[in-house]
Design a binder for these strands. Structure first.
Lengths: 203, 203
DNA sequence: AATGAAAACGGACAATTGTCCGTTTATCTC
DNA sequence: GAGATAAACGGACAATTGTCCGTTTTCATT
């Protein structure tokens, strides 16, 4: 027996929901927009919206997907093009790109993370730590960290854990807290995180 | 004109609320308990509860206070007692204590942080980054990091930012994610974070 | 084209969060 | 200790979140 195909209207609804959400978030800010409002504006029922997205965080995660794919390609291109640079230099470049990304998508990412924490264990909803974006960047960072470690002596920290820690430290909430408290520019934040990883100052 | 004193019953209510919340959280888990339920069980009105605590995160933050004070004293004692140890060693000890604390109070802290992210800018509610617990530990960590940096050469990262990054990386959600994914024991996590800070293995 | 069943729909409903305002009560003044 | 007053109360109410289920729609089968 063949598997029943996805209904044509489903894809259409999905597109409509994402498009509507993006527009409303843009106009009023993510926090000020309710799920009800999104459903109504998109012209779908409450149930339809919630069946697809367990909550706003879920929706936000999906909204980052496109951008996220682009971002990963950007990194991929950079790494391919600069294979000859030192791993330190390449890691620094990834950090810079990641920081730019965080600044651009802060609101969406914070919403994703906030909901992620609420649910704790339960839930079928996707989480940031399971997103391709997180997996990919952690993977790339840890490869570079491993490469750096190989050229040094002494007991090394688990590169995966180190990469994870970096990503956590760069989560929007903590990132902006420090940026504001110290009144750092974006560039100063980048320099600071480079130093944190013992990367020599940018050329 | 003298400032009007706080009403006696207010303190009583506050105590009752905290006590009730703690009990309910213990019995059913933080997420499963509603603010309404807390108010009702404590025998106070919804308004009374919300006037004191803007949301559950706020309440949770207050619930950590006692524990938090104790924790800070513990660190204070340790540092006083071990002034002669290397800064690396002392930093490692603080990390260990912090990790124990995170494991013990994970649910409350995650609730605090989740709400903190939801509100973003607005809000009068206290946040984790303004809590004495955070300030104190960041301060102590950054002092030790500065001491370590002084004995080394090369461009150093801002110790405050480094301490902040460590605390962020040790936030419950990220901490447990890594712990579970890698199937690390608490002790292995401690060792890993020591290595992350280039602290020689524990004696 | 008619039929049947799985998939999707949507809006009513339940639960939870958060606010508001008329009422109560402790404290101050005399 | 009587009255004034500002703080505190509490429960009704509004808004938001999240669920449920009877109905509709699409697709495969015939």
């Amino acid at each position: 027996m063949t598997v029943r195909q996805e209904r044509k209207d489903a894809a259409e609804h999905r597109r409509k929901i994402l498009q509507t959400a993006e527009k409303l978030f843009d106009e009023h800010g993510v926090n000020a927009v309710s799920m009800h409002q999104i459903a109504k504006t998109a012209g779908v029922g409450q149930g339809t919206l919630y069946r697809r997205y367990a909550h706003k965080g879920d929706l936000c995660l999906d909204l980052i997907q496109d951008f996220s794919r682009e971002f990963m390609e950007q990194i991929e291109r950079y790494l391919k093009k600069n294979e000859n640079l030192s791993p330190q230099e390449r890691l620094g470049a990834i950090l810079d790109l990641w920081i730019d990304m965080i600044e651009k998508k802060a609101e969406l990412i914070m919403t994703v993370q906030a909901h992620q924490m609420m649910e704790a264990e339960e839930s079928r909803a996707a989480t940031f730590f399971q997103s391709p974006l997180y997996s990919y960047v952690r993977q790339r960072m840890s490869e570079l960290l491993a490469e750096i470690a190989a050229s040094e002596s002494g007991a090394q920290a688990d590169p995966t854990l180190t990469a994870h820690a970096l990503i956590c430290a760069l989560a929007p909430h903590g990132y902006f807290h420090m940026k504001q408290e110290k009144n750092y520019s974006t560039d100063q934040m980048k320099q600071n995180f480079r130093r944190l990883c013992r990367i020599p100052p940018q050329l």
